[in-house]
Design a protein around this nucleic acid. Structure first.
Lengths: 194, 194
DNA sequence: GTCTATACGCCGATAGAC
DNA sequence: GTCTATCGGCGTATAGAC
């Protein structure tokens, strides 16, 4: 055959990456296969040689987006200080504006609710991955009244809620205030549970 | 004319209400004008006698949804105990499953991010309304290190984040755990800032 | 594997009868 | 004001050449 297996793999990966960026930015319904393929430097006809449907691509794109996002990309050798650093990055305007690879949990939260179980399973896997990673770090210095996993969940829902809301608000000043308030609140929460 | 002004007003209201329910449940893109009008007991042709576009309907539907939602409908004569009651209702499975009129902040958060400034303004107004209402109650018994408005924001972003994520997760047990954890965390937060 | 071309359906919005 | 009918556009997915 005129195309190597590696070439196919690379094409597939380009599609996955393009999809991760575009779906996060515009949502599932407002991104067409034609747009994704153009972003991946191909035409729409080639799509179905790599994925069986747009929905299946979505499911994979969520995991791709997660792999590139803050907490995974910089989440090696995590400790309390690094968590605080990541919280600040997560709750930053560049993240909200998707100038860095965004967290799909925050950018796609309500979008996932309308999709099939396969897509939801991807979202849930990313969510659990983030919780597990955080709770491992928080475990060794945990307060008496709150388990590490529960604390990690508090953290994540606040992060996700804040960024979701900030993206849906037009006023830049209100965005910044919101981000800063959550930042202060979460750091306070972490300090008090050392 | 064969139709009274009141009749027109009622039709318009039926459309608004139908839109509020359907948009919250399925999102903007996955609801057609035909569906909304069918839900409002009319045919699609009549739509543009009441609204100038689907986007304008969305903007109004967000406010309609907010008016019916928990914190507004039961938010009169608020106090700390009632806030705790509303938190429990908000973080309940019937709310997540939209068996009661849902909060548009949680059900539409990422959906709004892709719309125009007019829609975002509606979302922001609902958000600010909720923050203001809560912070008034929290103001008289505020802790030294955290303003009432900031505390109210912590509350809302946790509520919104939790319900958004819970809707996007398939496993009912994980949903319930998530809801319960946030419930505990927020009640703890409120008690500690009396 | 990737291309161009197209089948087929749905949607937002408009036109005109009643 | 509400109806039926339709326009124009775009979407997913497929077919067939190379």
């Amino acid at each position: 055959m005129p195309y190597s297996a590696d070439h196919k793999k690379q094409s597939r990966e380009r599609i996955r990456m393009a999809a991760a960026e575009l779906f996060c930015r515009y949502g599932f319904d407002q991104v067409s296969i034609t747009q994704v393929m153009k972003h991946a430097k191909m035409t729409h006809g080639a799509f179905y040689a790599h994925f069986e449907s747009k929905g299946m691509l979505y499911s994979e794109a969520i995991r791709s987006a997660a792999e590139q996002s803050l907490f995974v990309r910089e989440g090696y050798e995590l400790n309390r200080e690094k968590i605080i650093y990541l919280i600040k990055e997560y709750l930053s305007l560049p993240h909200v504006k998707q100038e860095v690879p965004p967290c799909p949990l925050a950018f796609l939260s309500t979008d996932i609710a309308h999709r099939d179980e396969h897509v939801k399973a991807s979202y849930e896997a990313v969510f659990n991955g983030m919780i597990n990673k955080l709770s491992q770090v928080l475990d060794d210095s945990e307060s008496a009244h709150q388990s590490a996993k529960s604390l990690a969940q508090q953290l994540v829902v606040s992060l996700v809620g804040t960024v979701s809301i900030a993206r849906s608000i037009a006023d830049p000043h209100a965005q910044q205030t919101l981000l800063d308030n959550t930042k202060t609140g979460l750091i306070h929460l972490l300090k008090n549970t050392v």
